[in-house]
């Protein structure tokens, strides 16, 4: 199931004195089964971009094709797209509202018109996928810890069996263990269910470790769209955009500058340790 964005432009306050371009000429192809990271400073246009992906925001010009069909066509069913592209907003746990965990997760599929049995199967499956055990399904969502609430909220989107799962800073405010747990969960969903995951993040370390493809947005434009290893080779440019490189990539660069024969492009602690040992011995 592919999604193609073709020359998308979007303006805030179009036609007013405050008109400003939020997205400029964005072209992007999202084929099946990728794990994509999106980085960019606050206000760079990341959130505006992902809201185009399921039609929440309509572009001022350009086209979006879902499986070859133009989503702005009059007879295109937007509900189909919204079902297939699941969006998890920042702090999704603020949107929990039902009396029990299972009811909250059931809300999406039921609302979509799934019959009761199917919806329940989907909800139980989604809760299992995010690691919420049977002991919690009848609990009030408000009794759960922050990390658990967030996983329930993600289950609510998963229960609609999306093909593309877009998450806007899903790890903000979680402790390091909670962060790793959630990212591993996304990786597992991606690998076992073949769902495309699009992860918007402010943590360079997280996208370096998990994403297979990294998109950098700056001032409403795509600046880089490549493997994380290649993107993080542009340390100076990224810093100018208010971004960073992972600490271990910075370390390897400095070691290489100091004359040690290490791989500059290391993205994770594991890679860095191996490269340093290789260089020393």
């Amino acid at each position: 199931m592919s999604l193609i964005l073709d020359k998308i432009n979007y303006y805030y306050g179009k036609g007013t004195a405050f008109e400003s371009a939020a997205l400029k000429n964005i072209s992007l192809a999202i084929p099946d089964g990728e794990f994509i990271g999106i980085i960019g400073h606050t206000g760079s246009g990341k959130s505006t971009l992902i809201q185009h992906m399921n039609g929440l925001i309509k572009a001022d010009s350009g086209s979006i094709y879902y499986n070859g069909k133009d989503i702005y066509d009059k007879d295109f069913k937007m509900t189909d797209l919204r079902r297939k592209v699941g969006l998890v907003f920042q702090y999704p746990e603020h949107q929990l509202f039902e009396a029990t965990v299972i009811k909250d997760v059931l809300f999406g599929p039921t609302n979509m018109g799934m019959d009761k049995l199917k919806a329940e199967l989907a909800a139980y499956g989604a809760l299992k996928a995010v690691g919420i055990g049977d002991d919690l399904i009848d609990a009030s969502p408000f009794e759960l810890s922050g990390g658990q609430k967030r996983r329930v909220a993600i289950a609510g989107v998963l229960a609609m069996s999306p093909e593309i799962l877009v998450l806007d800073e899903p790890t903000a405010g979680l402790d390091p263990a909670g962060r790793t747990e959630l990212l591993n969960l996304l990786k597992e969903i991606h690998e076992t269910k073949g769902i495309t995951v699009i992860l918007v993040s402010h943590s360079m370390e997280d996208v370096a470790e998990y994403a297979e493809r990294l998109i950098v947005i700056d001032e409403g434009e795509i600046k880089y769209d490549d493997e994380p290893r290649k993107v993080f080779a542009h340390a100076d440019e990224l810093r100018k955009m208010g971004l960073e490189i992972p600490q271990c990539t910075e370390l390897m660069g400095k070691l290489a500058d100091a004359g040690l024969n290490v791989d500059r492009s290391c993205l994770t602690v594991e890679e860095a340790v191996n490269s340093i040992i290789g260089a020393i011995s």
Partner: peptide, 12 residues
């Protein structure tokens, strides 16, 4: 109390 949790690298 977690003043940087919602910020980008430069903001942090």
């Amino acid at each position: 109390d977690e003043p940087t949790a919602m910020l980008d690298p430069k903001g942090r």
